[in-house]
Amino acid sequence: MSQHGEVLVLDDEPIVCERLMHHLEKNDFSVETFTESAKAVNRLAEKDFDVVVTDLKMRGPTGLEVLRYVRDHQPGTQVIIITGFASIDSMREAEYGGVFEFVPKPFQMERLTSLVKKATRKARKEHGKEKA
């Protein structure tokens, strides 16, 4: 396991995946990226991640649906939603669904990295509880 956490990044824009991968890996996270949400959900069924960073609007399952899936199947895993179209409704729904943080695009890399670090700490605490 990576020292700093295991992260799944899901965004249909390859540039977002690539840049997050580079930056998070440099900070010693282990990262898997997906540009198709169906494939990401399949992977989530196979493996527990500490943090999921997902876009909101995508073809196939949306960010909110991914959030719901994670809540139902991996309650300890923290979800960060990034989006260029933050509507009040979607934010409220995400809030209600237990999102860790909602980040509007464009965002600063450092801000996201520090959020992922915090989310990992929270996830590890909760995973610990589950195991106990």
Binding site: E13, I15, L20, K105, P106, Q108, M109, E110, L112
Partner: peptide, 16 residues
């Protein structure tokens, strides 16, 4: 500022 590389943006930002 976005060109400096500290931000992550996609084509949607360019459209906006």
């Amino acid at each position: 500022e976005k060109l400096g590389g500290e931000y992550v943006f996609d084509v949607q930002y360019l459209k906006t």
